[in-house]
Amino acid sequence: MAVLVFAESLSGSIKKAAIEAVTYGNLTAKAMGTECIALTIGTSSGAEALGQYGAAKVYNVAASDDFDAQAYAAVISDAAAQLGADTVVFAHSSSGKSLAGRLAVRMNAGLVTSVISVPEGGNFSVKKGVFSGKGFATYEISSVNKVVTIAGNTFPPEIVGSDVAVETLSVTVPASRVTVKSKSTVDGVVPLPEAELVVSAGRGMKGPENWGIIEEMAGILGATTACSRPVADVHWRPHHEHVGQTGVAIRPTLYIAIGISGAIQHLAGVNQSKVIVVINKDPEAPFFKAADYGVVGDLFDVVPKLNEALKKFKESQN
């Protein structure tokens, strides 16, 4: 029984999250002694490359690119039946989260979301973060069919194969009851949930006019910018940059927090970052307790110096 991965696209191209999902699907298939199949829906350029990350086969279902969880879930569960898949993998993305629960119902499958481990043992056991990063739980799925969504930035893509030709899969696509009117995403920037490097700033910045040094750092590193909640609340920064309990939860490899105190609600969204750097003038700021590297100093002095050092480093790398 195969592992089916829904490989999602954004603006017609395969997403990074989809490549991670295929990477995970391949590891899971290996653990279960079966093969990993990738499924794409609608325009999905770059899908053949999923073969490189471990998809033995890649299928495409012709359908509207406008996302509708209900129609897409019907397509994926029909595809799973046709292809003999008992395990379905999604990215823990806005689409993946909207679909996984529907699939679990359709397939009568046990569901675990945002997993951070490959299934182990004879039973299907997977781990995930719970209580906003204050613990981990290992779940066992006891049903025959299984559905998981995988946490972002957790399964680094590895090239294990080569391109495979995309085959068309014929599945009836139900009419959508949702009409997509418009879609706006920031161009040329890695979306925050997918970003490996994140530069984030808070109220210590004093005002939106001072964000130049933050954007400069993000530019040098190729990082995505984020912010604390009060900063988004007063519209110094766009709402989608807000990280934390009420905002986006992220798991980057590097999180640089500048002028952010490190309140528990903020930490809830960022404490699963691999490495945390904190720049704050107050040595008592709670964030230092959650940090790997800290700089106690005035950000208006420290950040320009760090930017210079990063620039020099980047130049030396070329």
Binding site: S95, K183, T185, T224
Partner: peptide, 9 residues
């Protein structure tokens, strides 16, 4: 949605 907004009806 990731890094943006979608408007639907």
């Amino acid at each position: 949605i990731e890094g943006g907004v979608e408007t639907i009806e």
